[in-house]
Each structure stands twice: as structure tokens, then as C-alpha cells.
């Protein structure tokens, strides 16, 4: 499988999880919240300073339909994470590692370094 196709599959799965399956996620409190409630320290929690954010609690403000509202918030979040981390990692990488393209802005050619591995198959 080419790196490009693997990336496409990974992105598709990610978007389906955040934009679709998240609607069916359990709404029970998570382990920490549950323990905090049972052992009596949940009340010390305070509302986050970003509790009024338009995407607070993974719901998009102004969108009535819960499924659409949650899915949209998930997709916006994924986009933000992808943009921030992708930019960070692209800037941090060892450029022109193979001495082929010093500072190409485009995506890397998939499978370039895997010839020895592919030959082993």
C-alpha cells in the first residue's frame, strides 16, 4: 500500500469517527469523573474558562440537530488538530533527509525509502 493511500484511509477513518460514530459514544461519566463523584471530590471541579466556546462540550452552537452539531464540532476539531500538528511536524522534520528535495512544500513521494523493504517481500 502506498503511503498516500494509507494516509487517505487513516484520514477517512478519522473523519468517520469524529463526524459520525461520535454520536453513538457513551454519555456516561468517564472513569475519573465517576471516581470523583463516588469519592466526593467532583464538587471541586470548576467550569472551564472556555465553557462558552462555540464548540464547548463537542456541540456546535447554533446547530439544533444534535447529531449534526456534534459531528460538525468533531470535524472542526479534527481539522484544527491536523492543521496545527501537521504544520508543526512538517516544520520540525529533517528536511531533504535523502538529499533529494531540500525544501519541497508538497507532500513526500510515498514509498521512496521503502525500496529495500519492498524488495524483501
Amino acid at each position: 500500500m502506498s503511503g498516500r493511500r494509507l494516509a487517505a484511509v487513516a484520514l477517512l477513518v478519522t473523519l468517520l469517527l469524529a463526524g459520525g460514530l461520535s454520536f453513538y459514544a457513551s454519555s456516561h461519566p468517564d472513569g475519573l469523573e465517576y471516581v470523583a463523584d463516588r469519592t466526593g471530590f467532583l464538587d471541586s471541579a470548576e467550569d472551564s474558562a472556555t465553557a462558552d466556546s462555540p464548540l464547548a462540550d463537542y456541540q456546535t452552537r447554533g446547530v439544533e440537530d444534535e447529531r449534526v452539531s456534534g459531528g460538525l464540532a468533531g470535524l472542526i476539531g479534527v481539522t484544527a488538530v491536523l492543521g496545527l500538528s501537521g504544520g508543526l511536524f512538517w516544520a520540525l522534520r529533517r528536511r531533504g533527509d535523502r538529499g533529494e528535495d531540500g525544501d519541497g512544500g508538497g507532500p513526500p513521494s510515498p514509498g521512496r525509502r521503502s525500496t529495500s523493504v519492498d524488495a524483501g517481500r
Binding site: L17, S22, G77, S85, F89, R94
Partner: peptide, 25 residues
């Protein structure tokens, strides 16, 4: 991180974000 793994790392971060949305009972 190199030319091949940097885009992968961005996708891993996005996948972790999506995965953290899926609470299982």
C-alpha cells in the same frame, strides 16, 4: 520525523483526537 513520517504524525494526532471522542461503556 522526516519527509515520510511527518504527515503520518499529523494524521496520528488527528486520529487520537477522534478516538478520544468515542467513549465506550
Amino acid at each position: 520525523l522526516d519527509d515520510r513520517t511527518a504527515p503520518m504524525a499529523g494524521l496520528v494526532a488527528a486520529f487520537v483526537f477522534a478516538g478520544q471522542m468515542i467513549n465506550f461503556p
